[in-house]
Nucleic acid binder design. Structure first.
Lengths: 125, 125
DNA sequence: CCGGATCCGACAGGATACTG
DNA sequence: CAGTATCCTGTCGGATCCGG
């Protein structure tokens, strides 16, 4: 677990498991590349190079590192085909696909919040 | 906007506003202290020192910085009372209180994901 | 084609001391 | 009480080159 999201405390009267659950979710969607990677795999499973081209500016080092983390966290599955040259496919787990609901609420809140901020600015003008 | 969450791309067939909305939400809840601060203010408005004691291990430097960011982002309101000594109160905006729905879905996903991971480990054992 | 190894800058976050 | 100022460390992420 990353240090930066470890210390969530006292969010409402939530039991400790809730706090851990929120941190688990945050660890899966925060950082610069996690969501782009998940996003590009939502359509279909892809190979290393495909992901890299799809995302655009990510270096192989970062892509490799992020894929490894996502695999450890049960977000993607890595399949190696022993051909020559070697082929590796990455695919989302069902759990990862269920992230859609989280993103939906985040979109909803983001849009609503933006509206609210604009309205407040107009009032104070 | 932080660099680390700027490059979200191609998440599903989402229009660009959805991507921005997700980033807005992420900017409000990621980092080590944002959620603890919001959490402690969910009960009631508090003063600087109260927040600091409530959270526990945060330094005044970090607390000040985070509160400033949260204010800029329309998450909290800062009220200064010109008494001696000076009193400053921090309070959540309605928008911030609406974050509960986001946290709820994150909790739900986190719990479900954990279950799924455990189940998969048992199967492969 | 799929990465690993190495080096490097930028920045989040901590420790401590000090002001209005 | 409510912060600032300064310094320091660790982690994130980029660049480049190398290997199976």
């Amino acid at each position: 677990m990353k240090e930066s999201v470890r210390t969530l405390q006292k969010v409402k009267a939530c039991p400790i498991e809730y706090v851990l659950a929120v941190n688990d979710t945050l660890n899966v969607i925060s950082g610069k590349w996690k969501l782009p990677i998940i996003g590009t795999l939502l359509y279909e499973k892809k190979r290393f190079g495909e992901i890299q081209r799809n995302i655009g500016k990510i270096t192989p080092r970062m892509l490799s590192k992020e894929l490894k983390e996502l695999e450890i966290n049960g977000i993607i599955v890595r399949k190696v085909f022993d051909s020559v040259p070697v082929v590796v496919e990455y695919e989302l787990t069902p759990s990862a696909q269920a992230l859609g609901s989280v993103l939906d609420t985040m979109v909803a809140w983001g849009l609503q919040h933006r509206e609210q901020v604009i309205k407040n600015n107009q009032e104070s003008a």
